[in-house]
Computed example of a mutant assay.
Amino acid sequence: MNTPLAFPAGPDADTVVTVRGLTKSYDGRRVVDALDLDVHAGEVVGLIGANGAGKTTTVEILQGLRRADSGSVSVLGLDPVHDADRLRPQIGSQLQSSGLPDRLRVHEAIRLFAGPAATDADALLEQFGLAHRRRYPFAGMSGGERQRLFLVLALLNRPRLVILDELTQGLDPAARREVWTAVTTLRDIGTTVLLVTHELDECEALCDRVVAMRDGTVLDQGTPAELVARHAGTATICFSLPAGDETTVAAVLQEVNRLPGVQGVTRKDGRILIRGERRAIAHVGGWLVGRDEPVPADLSVEVPDLEDALLTLLEQTDLPTIGAAS
């Protein structure tokens, strides 16, 4: 691949998006409720939450596609509504409804979307693995190729912010991985990315920070690992030990319970059940390997993930909402 293209940071580069007290209602139902949100330059930020959390409405307001009822919104130092003409060339987007005419060829789409300050389209096509598809019609492209084309079009005019809404929805695993690689390329060239997704493994793989939303407000935010640590519970390690007298078994339980990160050890139906922090997995594994016994054949480990964290957050009805996700 060619050397990645560099995109300019421009003035006021530290904060790309600032939202305070954003509110939006439809037919009397509030879908965004006093939302505070910050996105900093060079970040890949994921917005997650159940359907109806207000994620898509929020990013549409950021692009000036919808008007807020109240609150303040600054994107690259501009008002998305009143400064739309100045802001639009600085934002690239791929929304849920993105599509192109079936017969439109890749090079024709490039020509259609390119603005006066467009970057080298050939270099972008090469960078995203589409140089050999220049004369392909949209209908003849695979799902992964189409999504990478949308990324090329989103980057064509050298935006400082790229907004991606359900980027990999409906794609097969191979196509998803292709698109993930493309988003990683965006991060590598310094582009700020706001990613709306239900695919939480996608967030764990791509995002520097995740903002969990419910009913139009921010519940919590942080790195994927931080949200997992705060809300997803403990890791679980299970295995059987050879039969022994109760004194030997009790000594084993006490020994395991003293390992770093272990929060509790129980015995059930002849199996040892250990709960603890993620680091406990390494320490228990080291302890098992260091014993004068074979490693148990039924050893199993369950590690909490971002999905567990989000489900816990959504179930906590009395959880106080967080202010600015900075």
Rank of each mutant, 00 (worst) to 15 (best):
A6W: 00
F7V: 14
P8A: 15
A9H: 12
D12A: 15
T15Y: 04
V16S: 00
R20S: 12
K24W: 01
D27W: 05
G28F: 07
V31L: 08
V31I: 13
L35C: 07
L35R: 04
D36F: 11
H40P: 00
A41E: 08
V44D: 04
G46M: 10
L47G: 06
G49E: 04
A53D: 01
L62G: 02
L62F: 01
R67D: 06
D69E: 04
S74V: 01
S74E: 13
V75S: 02
L76R: 02
G77A: 00
L78G: 03
D83P: 09
D83L: 11
R88I: 03
Q94D: 03
Q96R: 10
S97G: 07
S97A: 15
G99H: 09
D102Y: 02
D102H: 09
V106L: 14
I110H: 01
R111P: 00
R111W: 00
D122P: 04
A123R: 14
L124S: 05
L125A: 08
L125T: 07
E126K: 12
E126N: 13
E126Y: 01
R133Q: 06
Y136T: 15
G143N: 11
E145W: 07
Q147V: 11
R148Q: 08
L149Y: 05
V152F: 11
L153P: 03
L156Q: 07
V162C: 10
I163G: 07
D165E: 05
E166V: 02
T168V: 13
T168L: 09
Q169T: 15
E178M: 12
T181P: 04
A182W: 07
T184S: 15
T185L: 15
D188K: 10
I189Y: 07
G190R: 02
T191R: 09
T192N: 08
V196K: 06
T197A: 10
H198M: 11
E199N: 15
D201T: 14
E204Y: 06
C207T: 09
D208E: 11
R209K: 11
V211H: 05
A212P: 10
R214Y: 08
T217M: 08
Q221V: 12
L227G: 06
A229D: 15
I237F: 08
F239T: 07
P242H: 05
P242F: 05
G244C: 11
G244K: 07
T247R: 13
T248I: 06
T248Y: 02
A250E: 12
N257K: 12
R258E: 15
L259D: 06
P260V: 07
P260D: 05
G261S: 08
G261I: 09
D269I: 04
I272D: 00
L273S: 10
I274T: 06
R278Y: 13
A280M: 14
W287M: 03
L288H: 11
G290V: 09
V295F: 04
V295N: 12
P296L: 01
D298Q: 06
D298I: 08
L299V: 04
S300H: 12
E302C: 11
V303L: 14
L306P: 06
D308N: 14
L310T: 02
L310V: 12
L313W: 04
P320C: 08
T321Q: 04
A324N: 07
A324D: 11
A324S: 14
A325S: 15
